[in-house]
């Protein structure tokens, strides 16, 4: 555990909780892509199957359970409790265009051709692109609530901090994992455009809106 890893995890946790609270407090999931949230629930489910097979630490187990629990709670709020506020018309990204290629890639490029390992690889690849329906929705509506941009910033920051974590681990522990690193770079790059808008607009007190 190093400082980048810890702050990355906390940033991830903050993102998840910001989104849950935003939906809960406003009693609305307007502007939130339910498809991205389903993908994240799928990511956590397929990655944390090792909860049944290996124990790493109390921290590790607790965080996994919190992430999974919050992911499903978010999906429940969007598709059940506050379904009436869900903006399905603007959430029109075709997720099969992500899930099918990612599934194929995880079968082709993995560390070990075993079910758990392939599912772990699938989760890593899928996470890297799971935010695309949300970004697509924002580009379609041309705007995002400020609280939604805070969520996206924390979520993007998390993987960027993991990149520093992996550099740290490579130098000090000799660890590297090409699958996680390449996917993590892709994931972080997808947020770059958003990071720019966040810094130049949201942090200066303006609402995030895209030119028509």
């Amino acid at each position: 555990m190093n400082i980048f890893r810890l702050t990355g995890d906390l940033s991830h946790l903050a993102a998840i909780i910001i989104l849950l609270l935003k939906i809960w407090k406003s009693r609305s999931c307007a502007g939130i892509s339910g498809k991205s949230q389903i993908l994240f629930a799928l990511v956590f489910t397929t990655r944390y199957l090792d909860l049944f097979t290996s124990f790493i630490s109390l921290y590790n187990t607790c965080m996994k359970l919190i992430y999974i629990g919050c992911a499903y709670a978010t999906v429940y709020l969007i598709y059940a409790k506050f379904r009436a506020t869900y903006d399905g018309n603007h959430d029109s990204f075709r997720v099969e265009f992500l899930v099918v290629p990612v599934g194929g890639l995880s079968v082709l490029i993995n560390h070990d051709f075993s079910p758990l390992e392939i599912l772990w690889t699938f989760s890593i690849y899928l996470e890297s692109v799971a935010i695309l329906p949300q970004l697509f929705m924002i580009s379609k509506t041309g705007e995002a609530e400020t609280i939604t941009t805070h969520y996206l910033f924390c979520l993007g920051l998390y993987r960027a901090l993991y990149l520093f974590n992996w550099i740290w681990r490579f130098y000090f522990e000799g660890f590297f994992d090409m699958i996680a690193i390449v996917a993590g770079v892709v994931q972080t790059v997808l947020y770059c455009d958003f990071f720019y808008l966040y810094v130049t607009k949201v942090l200066k007190g303006k609402k995030l809106s895209l030119p028509a």
Partner: peptide, 10 residues
């Protein structure tokens, strides 16, 4: 081949 990290990350 790829060297694999221990799966202690989230």
């Amino acid at each position: 081949a790829f060297k694999q990290m221990e799966k202690d990350e989230l």
